[in-house]
Structures are given as C-alpha cells and as structure tokens.
Amino acid sequence: MEVVASLTGFFPRPEALVAATRDLDRGRATPEAVEALTRSTEREILGLERRNGLAPLTAGYLRWQDIFRPLAERWGGFTVGPVTRWFETNTFFRQPVLHHPPERAPGALADVFPGPAAGLGPAEAQILLPGPYTLAGVLENRSGETHEALVHRLGRLLAEEIAELRGRGYRSFLLEEPLLVVRPPRGPAAESVLAAYRAIGGSANGGDTIVWTFFGDAAPVFPLLGRLPVSVIGIDLSETELARLPVPDAPIGIGLGCLDPRTTLREDPEQIRALAQEARERLRPPRLWLGPGGPLDLLPYEAARRKLEILPLARSMVDGGPR
C-alpha cells in the first residue's frame, strides 16, 4: 500500500509577507516589492515541502485570497460578493455571487496555479480547486438554476478545467469539499454530487483526483463519498471517528486529515500511526494520504511549519519505520 503525505490546502503567509501585503493595501509598499517577496516565499515553502518529503507540492498558494476567488474572478457569470464567514472559524472569504449560469473560457485559470515561475514543474504540483458541492453551496445563486443543476454544471466546468490542466502536464487535482461533511447532500442533491464527480473523475486522464473533506464528520456521508469516482477521499480525523466509517464497496484511497489547523498543539506521530493502522485494517485502501485536516492557514506561519514537520515522521511510522 502506498503512503503519501502532502499539504492539502493553503499554507499561511509568513510575518514578512503579512507585513508587506498590509503595506501594499496602505500604499506603503509597491506591487513589485510584494511580488518579489511572494516569489521568494513560494520557493521557501517549496523547500520546506521538499525537505519534509511531501509530494505533490503546493508552494503554499500564497497569492489566492480564498479558495473561490480565482474562479469567481475569471469564470463568466460571477462577481465577488460580501465578506462571509469560512465555516466555524474566525476567518472569512468573499462570497461569489452568480448572476447567470457559469461559464468558462479556455485558459481562464492558466496563470493562477503555482508553476515554473515558483520553481515547480506541473508534474509535481498539486492543483487546488473548490469542489462543486461546496462552491454551489456557499455562493449566492441569482442565476435561476436549481442547486442540483448548478452542482452538476460546476462539476462539468471543473472537469473541463482539469482536462485542460492535465493537457499541460499537471497530474494531481485536489478539490476542497468541506460542505460535503458540514451539510451532507441528500436525495437529488446527492445525485447531483455523483454526477458532478463522474465528470470530474473522467477528466483526469490517469491523474489523481482527491476530494478533501474537513470541518465535519465524514461518517454520515461516507456511503456517498465512497461511491465518488475519484482517487482519494480525505476525511478530517479531528471530526471523524474511523470506527464509524462503513467499508467502501470498491477500493478507494483514503486521506487522513491528521493535523488539526484549529490548534497549535502538535499531534503525536504515534497516535497518527495508530489511526492509520486502523484505517488500513478497516477500510483496506490502496493508498493512504496523510495531510492536514483543513487548510493550515488557520495557523500562523511558524506554528504551521512545526505542524507540517509531523507529517514525514508520521508517514515513516505508518510505512513501518521507527516507532
């Protein structure tokens, strides 16, 4: 069984970049200076990921203001709306407002992902995207489309995006889906999620599609998650008891969100190993993927860095290394 460890969402900006971006907003720093610092920080985070043996690599996604923003700014039909709470946290995002059925132009997101400029080749990069159910659930829908139709349509558009990126050499596509576990879909909504992921799963052409859930208990919705035609389903171990997960009908990779971004308290690698062992025995996944249980940018940079360093230790122990 393969064991992988990676970041699964944004990494926080270090203090210097915090100060620089603040200064930019206040007119005390130039865009060029902030760009240079962002570029060097991306390389620093890549170095951190590489030193800790993580793969695929993210470079932190430091430029994204929130997980929805690039789509809301570049896909047709959207405007960027009011500041809205990011689930049960003290952080916020700008709510996308959808005025008519969404559409995308080829290449619309071409320059938003970390690439060679950050020192990252497409084959080793992790593409982050919002999942269709979460995006459909958090946006303000003025388009006239039903929620179910919208989930399906967003799935198809994301599939087009993934297919295009796959053509450019990207291989790993992680979709953030907190809403799947915070407000599990039922009935027609669940069917629309399945339809959306059929499109997405069919678009990766041999690449990995990872659905990463967090901020909620995956057990109630796991029968649906297990049916999604994707490579890996990520669950938040701070919210989910493994013993309550039903065994999937078909083999599917399991992501263990084993770092809690809501506390600076560091997790014990031995406890992660024990949980991974339990997952391996109960769920028999072809692949185990270790990562944070949610975006680490809920932590300050140094605290996130300390947490990240737990991952290689845990992976080594899960792989049968030193205990």
Binding site: P12, R13, E15, V18, T21, R22, L24, D25, Q65, D66, V83, N90, T91, F92, F93, R94, T264, D297, L298, L299, P300, Y301, E302, A303
Partner: peptide, 10 residues
C-alpha cells in the same frame, strides 16, 4: 502570541 492569521484578503 503566535503570529498573524489571515482574516480575509490582506
């Protein structure tokens, strides 16, 4: 104190 966390945007 641990450092800064983003509230939103910058």
């Amino acid at each position: 104190f641990q450092g800064h966390v983003r509230s939103f945007d910058n």
